Lab assay of single mutants.
Amino acid sequence: FSITQFVRNLGLEHLMDIFEREQITLRVLVEMGHKELKEIGINAYGHREKLIKGVERLI
């Protein structure tokens, strides 16, 4: 299971460039909250919320 699959499953594949540029893996994403996601350029609250909720389902 990769970050690419995870992001695609959430319908947020347009954010993949950010994850690749910042070298974010699923392991790193698990540790990130709204503040960190915003810092790397994910400005939409809804997108950040989707990512965080998606990660919570993985754990």
Rank of each mutant, 00 (worst) to 15 (best):
residue 34 H to F: 03
residue 34 H to A: 03
residue 26 L to C: 08
residue 10 L to W: 03
residue 45 Y to P: 08
residue 24 I to N: 01
residue 54 G to N: 07
residue 18 I to H: 06
residue 36 E to G: 06
residue 41 G to R: 03
residue 15 L to F: 05
residue 28 V to R: 15
residue 34 H to K: 02
residue 17 D to F: 15
residue 39 E to I: 08
residue 48 R to W: 05
residue 33 G to P: 02
residue 34 H to W: 05
residue 52 I to H: 00
residue 51 L to T: 01
residue 19 F to A: 01
residue 7 V to E: 00
residue 57 R to E: 13
residue 51 L to S: 00
residue 50 K to D: 07
residue 55 V to M: 09
residue 37 L to R: 03
residue 6 F to T: 02
residue 13 E to Y: 11
residue 45 Y to V: 10
residue 31 E to C: 14
residue 54 G to E: 09
residue 38 K to A: 10
residue 36 E to K: 06
residue 42 I to G: 02
residue 9 N to H: 13
residue 32 M to L: 08
residue 33 G to N: 08
residue 28 V to M: 15
residue 44 A to F: 12
residue 38 K to P: 02
residue 5 Q to L: 11
residue 28 V to K: 15
residue 13 E to I: 10
residue 21 R to F: 06
residue 13 E to K: 08
residue 21 R to D: 05
residue 3 I to V: 10
residue 22 E to L: 05
residue 7 V to Y: 03
residue 47 H to A: 15
residue 10 L to N: 03
residue 46 G to E: 15
residue 17 D to V: 14
residue 17 D to E: 15
residue 57 R to F: 11
residue 31 E to R: 15
residue 30 V to C: 11
residue 44 A to P: 07
residue 20 E to H: 10
residue 55 V to P: 00
residue 15 L to M: 06
residue 3 I to P: 02
residue 13 E to V: 11
residue 12 L to H: 01
residue 30 V to G: 10
residue 37 L to D: 02
residue 58 L to G: 02
residue 26 L to P: 04
residue 22 E to P: 03
residue 20 E to Y: 11
residue 26 L to V: 08
residue 22 E to F: 07
residue 14 H to Q: 14
residue 18 I to S: 03
residue 23 Q to E: 07
residue 14 H to M: 12
residue 10 L to E: 04
residue 9 N to Y: 12
residue 54 G to I: 05
residue 42 I to L: 04
residue 33 G to I: 02
residue 28 V to E: 14
residue 21 R to Y: 05
residue 48 R to I: 08
residue 18 I to N: 04
residue 56 E to Q: 15
residue 45 Y to R: 11
residue 43 N to S: 14
residue 23 Q to N: 14
residue 49 E to N: 09
residue 48 R to E: 01
residue 49 E to P: 02
residue 43 N to L: 15
residue 58 L to D: 04
residue 24 I to L: 08
residue 13 E to Q: 10
residue 44 A to I: 13
residue 24 I to G: 01
residue 16 M to S: 10
residue 23 Q to C: 09
residue 13 E to F: 10
residue 18 I to V: 08
residue 40 I to M: 07
residue 16 M to Q: 09
residue 35 K to C: 08
residue 5 Q to E: 15
residue 33 G to Y: 03
residue 13 E to L: 12
residue 58 L to E: 06
residue 36 E to F: 03
residue 30 V to F: 13
residue 53 K to I: 09
residue 36 E to S: 04
residue 28 V to F: 08
residue 30 V to M: 15
residue 27 R to P: 11
residue 35 K to E: 11
residue 27 R to Q: 13
residue 5 Q to C: 12
residue 45 Y to N: 06
residue 31 E to A: 13
residue 23 Q to M: 09
residue 34 H to C: 03
residue 27 R to E: 09
residue 23 Q to L: 07
residue 28 V to I: 14
residue 56 E to N: 10
residue 37 L to Q: 05
residue 49 E to K: 11
residue 25 T to A: 05
residue 3 I to M: 13
residue 35 K to G: 06
residue 25 T to Q: 06
residue 23 Q to K: 12
residue 2 S to M: 08
residue 52 I to S: 01
residue 50 K to T: 13
residue 51 L to C: 05
residue 56 E to V: 09
residue 18 I to G: 01
residue 55 V to F: 10
residue 32 M to H: 02
residue 10 L to D: 00
residue 26 L to W: 14
residue 35 K to N: 11
residue 10 L to C: 06
residue 35 K to Y: 08
residue 52 I to W: 03
residue 42 I to K: 04
residue 54 G to P: 00
residue 54 G to D: 04
residue 24 I to Y: 04
residue 47 H to C: 11
residue 6 F to E: 00
residue 9 N to V: 12
residue 23 Q to G: 14
residue 46 G to A: 15
residue 33 G to A: 04
residue 12 L to N: 01
residue 33 G to C: 05
residue 14 H to G: 08
residue 19 F to P: 00
residue 34 H to R: 04
residue 33 G to K: 08
residue 12 L to W: 01
residue 43 N to E: 15
residue 44 A to H: 15
residue 3 I to A: 05
residue 26 L to S: 03
residue 52 I to E: 00
residue 19 F to D: 01
residue 24 I to P: 02
residue 48 R to L: 07
residue 58 L to C: 08
residue 54 G to L: 06
residue 20 E to Q: 13
residue 44 A to S: 15
residue 54 G to S: 08
residue 26 L to Y: 07
residue 54 G to A: 15
residue 7 V to A: 06
residue 17 D to W: 14
residue 7 V to I: 13
residue 28 V to G: 12
residue 12 L to C: 04
residue 52 I to G: 00
residue 59 I to V: 12
residue 35 K to D: 09
residue 31 E to N: 15
residue 48 R to C: 07
residue 15 L to Q: 02
residue 36 E to R: 05
residue 49 E to F: 07
residue 49 E to V: 14
residue 26 L to I: 10
residue 19 F to R: 00
residue 1 F to V: 13
residue 21 R to M: 06
residue 40 I to T: 03
residue 38 K to N: 08
residue 14 H to C: 12
residue 38 K to W: 07
residue 7 V to N: 00
residue 27 R to I: 10
residue 44 A to C: 15
residue 11 G to F: 03
residue 33 G to D: 07
residue 3 I to S: 01
residue 11 G to I: 01
residue 37 L to M: 09
residue 12 L to G: 01
residue 42 I to N: 04
residue 48 R to A: 05
residue 4 T to Y: 14
residue 56 E to P: 04
residue 4 T to A: 14
residue 21 R to V: 06
residue 17 D to H: 15
residue 57 R to I: 11
residue 6 F to D: 00
residue 51 L to F: 05
residue 15 L to A: 03
